[in-house]
């Protein structure tokens, strides 16, 4: 169709980059939550509340991260032998 095609390696790098951004943000949020627990322990500021909330929040973020990995990696490394014309084109 069109002459220029994006360089597949750059494409792959960008795709993995997206996943990395997801990782970084989720890890960032989780470490923030952990930091807040630590702070509440330090200052005796109802740590139970912090821990309680984190018990719900952290698994949710981990679930989102897991799902993202499942989709990204699952779609990118699709080794099924069916016809996939567009990827063929890229090669």
């Amino acid at each position: 169709m069109k002459a220029q095609r994006p360089n597949p390696r750059t494409v792959r790098a960008a795709q993995l980059g997206l996943l990395a951004v997801f990782w970084v943000s989720v890890i960032g949020i989780i470490s923030w939550i952990v930091r807040l627990i630590q702070l509440s322990l330090e200052l005796h500021d109802i740590p139970s509340a912090s821990i309680g909330i984190s018990l719900v929040a952290i698994p949710v973020f981990l679930l989102l991260l897991g799902l993202a990995n499942y989709v990204f990696l699952g779609l990118l490394w699709d080794d099924s032998h069916e016809a996939h014309p567009s990827t063929d084109d890229e090669r």
Partner: peptide, 9 residues
């Protein structure tokens, strides 16, 4: 993400 519409995808 390299979508081809394969069954697995």
């Amino acid at each position: 993400l390299g979508w081809t519409g394969s069954k697995r995808q």
